[in-house]
Design a binder for these strands. Structure first.
Lengths: 118, 118
DNA sequence: ACAATAGTCAAGTGAAAACTTCAGTGTTTT
DNA sequence: AAAACACTGAAGTTTTCACTTGACTATTGT
């Protein structure tokens, strides 16, 4: 993983966000990072996978803005980032209210239909 | 897709929930269902995939409690279900607050450390 | 009854993606 | 300076997964 900087101003892609969270191992990584920042090998050990594999996951998590990593000397420190979570929360709110509106409308329609029948 | 009943009392598996939402096509299906209940072939047409493929997606969405389907005669009607979305929202809330607490704690520690230095 | 419709099933294909190996690179310790 | 450490990169393997095909079942329309 080259240390190419991630464009922090890019709007978060909901597609890669869901993809990032759609993997068991990546969510396990997030769970570890909830407690404290960790190194790459520190993350790898309890997962029972290679350091390289963790690096690949980190790349995906970082692009989804769920994790931020920074290399100091020879160790890379990884920690949770808020942006991804916020974007996800927003997406769900939007979608939930969208179909709640529709369901309300449908409910009213059915009620009117019922009333007309009598 | 056999009509084996889905255990509606089973607590929602966050793993299959994320996996369900991690696919572009399945989210497109959800978007279609936001507007109105639809049939399997009705969903398939605008997606440009086979009815069989849609069935497979529906199976996954149904297990994640994001949609509910019901077969009447030869037609299967599909509609959004709320349970999955609610579980997801809860998960995010839990996780966000969890690490927000940790970050707060870390912040205080650093502040104290700073204060002690002077 | 016959055809058309709507979905179901089993099995297979192909591509994406998770993971590995192994040979580097730069950094810290001794 | 040399060894140990922590990662990085490229390339390969294996697994997962979306999607298809084609044969089949059950329901509805003529």
């Amino acid at each position: 993983m080259r240390d190419r900087p991630i464009d922090r101003d890019r709007s978060i892609d909901i597609d890669q966000l869901f993809h990032a969270l759609g993997d068991r191992t990546r969510r396990a990584i997030l769970d570890q990072l909830v407690d404290r920042p960790m190194t790459v090998s520190g993350l790898a050990e309890p997962l029972g996978i290679t350091v390289t594999a963790v690096m690949q996951h980190l790349q995906i998590l970082e692009e989804a803005r769920l994790v931020h990593t920074e290399k100091l000397g020879r160790v890379r420190s990884c920690r949770i980032e808020t942006a991804g979570f916020r974007a996800l929360e927003q997406w769900i709110r939007d979608h939930r209210t969208a179909w709640e509106k529709k369901l309300d409308r449908l409910g009213r329609l059915l009620a009117e239909e019922d009333a007309g029948r009598n």
